[in-house]
């Protein structure tokens, strides 16, 4: 894999924003996840090297945060909220149905998440961190299909930028 020159420059810009380089751990993990679709061991090692940390510290930090996928995920991460307002408006149903619908899919990873602050649109979900809702399973699947066939432009899986969704 390896950082491209452009990545390296981008990483350096990020590091330079902070008084101490370690602060760049989260931004660089996002950067790596956007590039690779997950946080690979190589990425953690590169970040450790760039920031003067041990890889153990990078892993320790990385594993604390739910947005970082330490295994390759689908190109679309569908986050379904089941917290209170969504729960009482059908969030669990939405989650269960989407999960079974995309169980076999390698493009779509459906996950249950805590409140994503879209409660006025409950039950709410995000597709690569774009907000959607309220929706039932049909409506939600329809939105996901639109991302999959390119009618909607998806963000990267860390939500940083728009990307082509590879099918």
């Amino acid at each position: 894999m390896g950082l491209t020159d452009a990545d390296q420059r981008r990483a350096q810009q990020i590091i330079d924003r902070y008084p101490y380089p370690k602060s760049a751990v989260l931004p660089l993990l996002h950067l790596a996840q956007d590039r690779d679709g997950w946080v690979s061991p190589e990425a953690m090692e590169q970040i450790a090297e760039l920031l003067g940390l041990t890889p153990a510290l990078v892993l320790g930090t990385c594993s604390f945060y739910t947005m970082f996928k330490r295994e390759p995920a689908g190109a679309l991460v569908v986050s379904v909220c089941t917290n209170l307002s969504c729960m009482v408006n059908g969030g669990f149903d939405l989650f269960d149905q989407l999960r079974s619908r995309y169980q076999e899919s390698s493009d779509v990873s459906v996950e249950e998440v805590e409140c994503i602050a879209h409660c006025d649109h409950a039950p709410a979900f995000q597709v690569n961190y774009d907000f959607h809702g309220p929706a039932d399973a049909h409506g939600a699947a329809d939105v996901i299909e639109q991302y999959l066939d390119g009618r909607l432009a998806a963000r990267t899986i860390s939500g940083t930028a728009r990307q082509e969704v590879p099918r």
């Binding site: 924003r17 370690k22 602060s23 751990v25 931004p27 320790g60 930090t61 604390f64 945060y65 739910t66």
Partner: peptide
């Protein structure tokens, strides 16, 4: 100077001192 720092999914980074740990690149 103003720096936008993105979190990565954890409620406890909302606690002010959790936020500081997280901003330093540590577990929040």
């Amino acid at each position: 100077d103003l720096v936008l720092h993105r979190g990565a999914g954890c409620y406890i980074a909302g606690d002010e001192t959790g936020l500081l740990s997280s901003l330093e690149g540590e577990r929040a």
